[in-house]
Each structure stands twice: as C-alpha cells, then as structure tokens.
Design a protein around this nucleic acid. Structure first.
Lengths: 253, 253
DNA sequence: CAATCTTATTTGTCATACAAAATCCCGTTG
DNA sequence: CAACGGGATTTTGTATGACAAATAAGATTG
C-alpha cells in the first residue's frame, strides 16, 4: 500500500495522471469463485442433470469457505436454472433444457467445457437465423445516432491492422446492429455474437486461415441500413455470414 | 447414474399410483420473494438503471427479513444482470442492455411492468425472426422421436376445444419444433414463445377475436418437417406467424 | 494545492443456532 | 400384509452477531 513517492519531481507532470480506476476484484469474491467452480462442474458433466450435488457443508469444506458463501453461490446458479434445492434432499442438477445457456456466465462455462468447434458451429447457426432478421428491422428502424455508431464500429475495423485488434470493433459492429433493430429482446442475444467472434478468432489463428474481404462485406451492410433498404440489408448480412461459415466449413471438414 | 432405484417390492401392483407430488412452496422462500420484490421494482422503473438501491439492512427492514435472505436475493438478481454490488457504495442497477431479459423470471417481471401489447409485439418480432429459421433446421435434422413429439402436440391442439385448453399444446408444439432443430442454444429461446403465446391468449380473449385456421396451419408445418422439406417448413411457419401477427395488427391498430 | 491519512459506511465473510421441510424407518392397525 | 401414521434424521432455510475488506469522502499536512 505504500506508494512510491521518493522522486520529488518539480510537479512538471505533463498529464494529470487520471487514476485508471481499474477495479478488478469483482470475480475474486468467494461466492463468485464458488459459483464458477460449481457451475463449471455442472457444465462439464461432473454432475450430470438429475444428479444430487454435494451438500452445502461439503462444498464449504472443498473450497474452505463458509456455508454462507456456498449458499450465495448456489442462489446464483439457481437463478441461472442450473439447479434446484430442497430441504432434506439437497441440490439437484436441473435438466439441460432448463439451463440458461444464453447467460453470459453459463455460456462461458459451457464454452470451456465442450468441443470448441462444435460450440462455434452452434453459435454460428444461431447467428444465421438471427442476424439477417435483425438487419431487416435495423434497416427500417435505426435512428441516425444508431447508424452513426454502426459506422463508427466499421471505422474501427478499418483501423485495425491485426486480426486480434479486429475482434473488438467487429463485436461492436454486430452489437450495434442488434441495437439498431430497436427490440429489447434482441439485445441479450448479443452474447451469442460475442462468443462466436471470440471463438472465431481463436479458430482462425489456430488454423491460420486468411481473412477474406470482411471490411467490404461489413460496409455493404452499413450501406443498406443507411439506405433503409431491408432486403438489401438481409442479403448483405447473409453474404457476410456465408463467408464466415465458409471458413469454418472449409477448414474443419 | 442409477436413475431408477430398484424397488425391492414384489412388483406386482397393477397401478403404481404415482403420487402427484405437487410441491408448491418453492416461491414461498423468503429469499425468493425478496428477489421477486426487488426485481419487479427494478423492472418497473422504481429504481432506474444507474440508481443506487437501498442497502441490505434497509431491504431487511422493508421486508421484515434478515440480511442473509436479502443478500441471497441480491445474488440471484446479480446473476441475472440486474445489479452489481460494491462495498461502501452499495448495489447499483445495471444499464438495461445488461439485463437478462430472456431469463424466465426477468421476463415475467418485465411483462408485469410494461404495456402488454407492446411487449407482445416485441415477442412476436423475435418469433418471426427465430421460428422460420428453426423450422429449416428442424426439417433437416429432426429425429423420428422428435417428429412424433411434434405430432403429438398437434394432436393435443386438435383435442382442445376451448381457447384456453389450446394454449398448453400450442406451446408444446413450438417448443418441440425448437427441439427438432437440435441446437442447444435455441432451446433457451423457448421462453419467448411461452410468453408470447400466454400473452396472445390474454390478448385474444380480451379483444374477443375469433381464432383463424390455426390447426391446418400447424399441420402444414408438421407435414413439411415430416417430409424433410426445409423451404416448405419455413414457408408454412411464416404463414402461421403472419396469421398471428395479423390478429394483433388488425385489433390493436 | 496536492498528496496522504483518517474515518465512516457498506458489502463480504464467517460462525452458530435454530426452524422448516421432506425423506426414511418403523411400529401400529385395519 | 398393506396402508397409514408418527417420530427420527438429514438437509436446506432463516436469523443474528461479529468482524474483515473495500472504498468514498472528509480531514490533515507538507
């Protein structure tokens, strides 16, 4: 905690030195680690659906934590549909179809647990269903501000000169597109896109495939949405997704 | 792994007389009521995004509950993306785009809070994006068992002679269709359909619109999926959704 | 005036105790 | 013998009190 101050500079500090305020320790809470630990074990099949989990006291021993912390973790997982608890019987893993796979945490645990390529294929399938339709709505309903955000994201992609630097603005682009649709139920599906693009990046670097003409394809989507042309937007988006799927299919087959 | 525990009885009883086992009191837990109480207040805007919630002790006083129960409720809501907590500052409502609107509970609270017709329109929009695409996948990938379930749901719809009795098999039908797509990320979206159909029922009874030819339309979907004809399945599903949207549009406009 | 120290507030964690629910076992009884 | 009922037992549910840790805001000091 003792900051270093010894250097008595003459206060000529050029920049005001804003504190980054990078507060990390949100995942470092005991209950959060427990939730992640238990959640991952459910997702990876250590405790399959229908199975009884260890009781709260036992989890506490396993993680050297209090029952309070265990219970808070279990409440989190219960809220995500992974388990239910009953007195005298304990906590039981829910059937898979009740799991909130679209939840951010659950999806991360699931991604860590299952085959990456299969997972990526599932994600892309959802994108192919989702994004052309979202593009149609976006073309008819986007506000000028939303369009500006979309264009800004595209500009970010243009400025990225490494594949890695491309991911963030690419995600921003597709999330902006969802936002343009102005349907609040679509926004939560952004997590699918985030995961897909993150996994896609890992996939492409691993199989060192060369990127296609992604920028022009994205630009085509923007053009259609700017012109408020729903059918063109759908087509442009479908073309974009075709290209992505092509990379996966060509490489993994 | 051992699903069925071998009952050491003489095993000759004609009808085992399954106990209904209607255990209710799952929502009657204090922490569950607190989660619902706080959650609804967030969804209905009593505490808008960015706002600081009362601290844990205060919630405890408001609901005559212990801090333990309050904290468990808050962990549930945190898991659903509705709030984050920090020492010394308290719990703050997260921006709306972080909310897990596709979560079953959150959706229920949201439905209770907002205009029913607007909500229904949002739900239907998602269905129009989702279900035709799901039908395509279903046509190519459904197993015979899944097809049988779909047909069984359709039969259930045929046997329903009141609008109310129609809802349950209708839901079953559309959930079965999602299952036929064999993409685990689509199943969680079933909640959208459940909510849409439940609200649709409330809507039609309130505006006493007469039902169209829903059974033949559903049958058409089954036929296409049985024949493994993706394009026909998409079209049949689109027709079905057009009809539903027609009822809403005609009535609410 | 800025950096640092102090203080106060709120959440985070722990330990303990008891209540409530639900299963299991077992004895009673028709 | 089967069905019923009534404890005994296990596990979660709730409450309480205490303290640690984090952090915002105010006080102090060079």
């Amino acid at each position: 905690m003792t900051n270093k101050i010894a250097i008595s500079g003459k206060a000529q500090s050029s920049a005001p030195r804003r504190k980054p305020k990078a507060r990390r320790p949100l995942g470092s809470r005991v209950h959060a680690e427990l939730a992640a630990g238990i959640g991952m074990r459910i997702l990876d099949g250590t405790y399959p659906p229908g199975e009884l989990l260890p009781n709260e006291a036992e989890w506490g021993r396993m993680f050297s934590a209090s029952r309070t912390a265990v219970r808070e973790a279990i409440r989190t997982l219960n809220g995500k549909g992974l388990l239910v608890s009953r007195p005298k019987v304990g906590s039981r893993v829910e059937p898979r179809e009740r799991w909130n796979l679209l939840d951010r945490d659950v999806m991360a645990w699931n991604c860590a647990a299952m085959n990456k390529t299969d997972f990526l294929i599932s994600l892309q399938e959802v994108r192919r269903i989702l994004e052309p339709g979202a593009a149609v709505l976006a073309a008819t309903r986007r506000t000028p501000q939303q369009l500006a955000q979309l264009e800004d994201a595209l500009e970010g992609m243009r400025n990225a000169h490494t594949a890695e630097a491309m991911v963030a603005p690419d995600v921003r682009f597709h999330l902006s597109l969802l936002a343009c649709a102005n349907n609040e139920l679509l926004a939560p599906l952004g997590i699918v896109i985030e995961q897909a693009l993150a996994n896609m990046f890992a996939f492409t670097t691993q199989h060192n495939t060369k990127p296609g003409q992604v920028i022009p394809m994205h630009a085509e989507v923007v053009k259609a949405i700017a012109a408020q042309n729903p059918e063109a937007a759908r087509k442009a988006m479908a073309t974009l997704l075709d290209d992505t799927d092509g990379i996966i299919g060509r490489t993994s087959r």
